[in-house]
Nucleic acid binder design. Structure first.
Length: 261
DNA sequence: ATGTCAACCTAAGGTTGA
């Protein structure tokens, strides 16, 4: 089965691209980030028409995550990590949705960007990463096959960015962000793309600005972390790069892992 | 600061977030 993550940057603006990607690549599970709509604006019936059932966690204008599954409705386990946003009184942002599909635990996340660094948004990012790690510990203790995937907004190493120098001051590659990510790997989770592409040079995001796509100035921030059992069952992992070059594309590409049944 | 984009507030154009 194929499990995929795709930061779509607005589900209303991206619906035609999203539907065509689902039909062309037919992932078993598709985790979406930045749906940028309230719950009532989620086009569930469009996905039903092509055989996908969904659960979603929306928010007005920003953020928002969804889990789609081919032929069955994901069984929701948890929404949110229990952490408020960086502004006073705003409550929790829609960044985390966890479900069970075909006996697998699917943890879909949209990690805070954290720019500008330093500042309250960066502090929020680090706090969010610690909350996530704590949740990953709980899941580990349950001993269920699990994949933690989504837009982590972390460039793990210099080999994962077109120019470490150009990005040096960005929150995505600060040592604190990288250390927090490394701790998850040290806990025993396997970075699917990195494991199969140890030399790096794989991008999942190209900025809309400054001709980044045309110049291949991208980086890798969309990740799939596998529990040990699933890491053993991994047969392939990749990036659907072609979709970044289509009309009205997201600034991210879909990223996926293939798991042996 | 930026060769950009999406959504929102509000009524064509600015603000926010990425």
């Amino acid at each position: 089965m194929r499990i995929a993550t795709f930061n779509i940057n607005g589900i209303k603006a991206r619906l035609p691209r999203l539907l065509e990607w689902l039909e062309e690549t037919r992932p078993t599970v598709a985790c979406l980030q930045e749906i940028k709509t309230m719950d009532e604006g989620f086009p569930a019936e469009e996905f039903e028409k092509i055989g996908y059932h969904a659960i979603w966690h929306g928010q007005k204008s920003f953020n928002g995550v969804a889990i789609l599954a081919d032929g069955e409705k994901p069984k929701e386990i948890q929404r949110g990590l229990g952490i408020d946003g960086p502004r006073d009184g705003e409550g929790e942002q829609a960044r985390y949705l966890e479900a069970e599909v075909k006996g697998l635990r699917i943890c879909n996340l949209y990690l805070p960007n954290g720019n500008p660094h330093p500042g309250p948004k960066f502090d929020y990012k680090l706090a969010w990463m610690e909350k996530l790690r704590a949740r990953m510990h709980d899941i580990w203790a349950e001993e269920v096959p699990a994949v933690v995937l989504g837009d982590f907004n972390v460039i793990p190493e210099d080999k994962d960015v077109w120019s470490p120098k150009a990005m040096a001051s960005d929150a995505l590659m600060q040592p604190e962000s990288r250390d927090a990510y490394k701790r998850m790997l040290a806990d025993g989770w396997t970075d699917a793309i990195d494991t199969l592409n140890p030399r790096g040079g794989v991008w999942t995001y190209w900025d809309y600005q400054a001709g980044a796509w045309q110049r291949d100035r991208g980086f890798r921030i969309d990740h799939l972390l596998l529990s040990p059992e699933l890491a053993d069952r991994m047969t392939a992992a990749g990036v659907d790069k072609e979709y970044r070059g289509r009309e009205k594309s997201s600034d991210h590409t879909p990223v996926w892992v293939e798991i042996r049944d």
